[in-house]
């Protein structure tokens, strides 16, 4: 009966059933909530790093610790150079992921395949850079429970710095690794025409959300560990 219609017909229609109130697919909404919970995990890690750093008198200078570069002679002083390359690799791979999602919306299989391959290459390049950096630091004597670096003022340092560095970049690197695996699965599914059969490339969008989140976390990890 039309006389029983409430004052806000739009709202009644939105939540009245028969259509998605968030105008988004279930899996995508759930991916958002997963990423929100993951943001709290990373947030807790980074905030505990900040709390411990604020409660300590001295802290190593990141420009002293991260001054090396692959294939450069030992003792080279190139702070921020290598990590800026890693940052740009991740930004570029994020852009190619956006382009893959965009191609998916247009049902452009070739575009999806091309950009997914570029994104996977970017992810593997980032992981390789991180593997080199970890390996280099390990050979300098840095590891969980071992810190060869002095504080910026020349005083003795605790192992807090290396513990946090390896835990947080390790957890982020594990996310990158999972992202690469997910992207490879998406690429295989695309090549097998799975999404053409379904009639949509929503899975690419969900993988894209995860990949952008990995890039987002790196923005914070990069700034907090290498710049501040």
């Amino acid at each position: 009966m039309s006389t029983t219609t409430t004052a806000s017909p739009n709202e009644a229609k939105l939540w009245g059933g028969g259509k998605s109130p968030f105008n988004s697919e279930y899996g995508k909404v759930m991916m958002w909530y997963f990423l929100m919970s993951d943001a709290f995990t990373f947030g807790a890690f980074l905030i505990s790093y900040g709390t411990v750093r604020f409660s300590t008198n001295g802290w190593p200078n990141s420009n002293e610790v991260f001054k090396s570069f692959p294939f450069a002679p030992e003792g080279v002083n190139a702070p921020l150079v290598f990590v800026s390359i890693m940052t740009f690799i991740l930004i570029i791979s994020s852009v190619t992921m956006v382009l893959a999602v965009h191609a998916g919306k247009n049902m452009d299989k070739q575009g999806v395949v091309r950009n997914m391959i570029l994104t996977i290459i970017g992810g593997i390049a980032f992981l390789s850079c991180q593997a080199w950096e970890w390996n280099h630091l390990f050979h300098e004597g840095a590891w969980w429970g071992a810190n060869p670096f002095l504080n910026a003022d020349g005083t003795a340092s605790t192992t807090n710095f290396t513990n946090f560095f390896f835990t947080i970049t390790g957890f982020h690197g594990f996310h990158v690794f999972s992202g690469v695996v997910i992207n490879i699965i998406m690429l295989i599914m695309t090549l097998m025409d799975k999404f053409e059969q379904r009639g949509h490339y929503l899975m690419i969008e969900k993988a894209g959300l995860y990949w952008h989140f990995v890039d987002l976390v790196w923005v914070f990890v990069f700034t907090i560990f290498y710049l501040l």
Partner: peptide, 22 residues
């Protein structure tokens, strides 16, 4: 850093184009 995070979430992750309730 916060500005970069905003641009990634709002545009790359498309959150700005979602329904306000979401």
């Amino acid at each position: 850093m916060m500005a970069k995070a905003f641009y990634i979430v709002a545009y790359f992750m498309h959150l700005k184009h979602e329904v306000k309730n979401l």
